[in-house]
């Protein structure tokens, strides 16, 4: 289990702790064919998932303009296999790139649930991380992790397109760690 991504075990979200602990148990208990199968096929699934990340076409605010700029000619996000799909059924990354108002909470939660299982959430920009410049607003949710478990935070206001692609590089490392512990683990 690559601990470098979890330098401080305290800050793990409940979901991450669950998957980390079940991975530990799987390491110890599993043996024989299941273990070797996981060991062999893990990197293949990881390579496939890493190189075809489809984020949801869902722009909220200023970082959405930079998300669009990330897929243009200079910072081509499609080089790493990222296409923006518009239906949540066919995506695996929920990308939140703006401030989240109280009116939007049920919609984001429903979108998160509609995305099929191995899914990740990327909080892009200060507003999604912690409410950003609208710290004292009555209508803004102060941070995305109050609604959905977040995997990668990309700081900046608004973030540069290359910072976004760098954030997705970090997410690729996390996808690797997720698959190295055995794909068909029900956590």
């Amino acid at each position: 289990m690559d601990m470098s991504l979890y330098p401080h075990a305290v800050a793990m979200s409940a979901d991450e702790f669950m998957s980390w602990s079940s991975a530990m148990i799987n390491e110890m208990l599993s043996a024989g064919t299941k273990r070797t199968v996981d060991k062999l096929t893990g990197p293949v699934w990881a390579w496939a998932m890493r190189n075809s990340m489809h984020p949801l076409h869902f722009g909220l605010a200023c970082c959405a303009i930079e998300m669009a700029a990330a897929s243009d000619t200079r910072y081509d996000a499609e080089r790493v296999g990222m296409i923006y799909r518009s239906s949540p059924r066919q995506t695996d990354i929920l990308l939140i790139n703006g401030w989240i108002s109280k009116k939007l909470r049920p919609d984001i939660r429903r979108l998160y649930e509609q995305i099929p299982a191995p899914k990740w959430v990327v909080a892009m920009g200060e507003c999604a991380i912690s409410g950003g410049p609208w710290y004292d607003s009555y209508n803004i949710v102060q941070g995305l992790d109050q609604i959905v478990p977040v995997d990668v935070y990309i700081p900046g206001c608004p973030i540069k397109p290359d910072a976004m692609i760098d954030g997705f590089m970090l997410l690729q490392k996390k996808i690797d760690a997720y698959f190295r512990r055995g794909v068909f683990m029900t956590d």
Partner: peptide, 20 residues
């Protein structure tokens, strides 16, 4: 723009999509 560069010059991108 350059299109996909996954795998050998992008050919394994279809494999990646399929497996994913």
């Amino acid at each position: 723009r350059r299109g996909t560069m996954v795998g050998l010059k992008g050919f394994l991108q279809c494999l990646g999509d399929g497996l994913k």
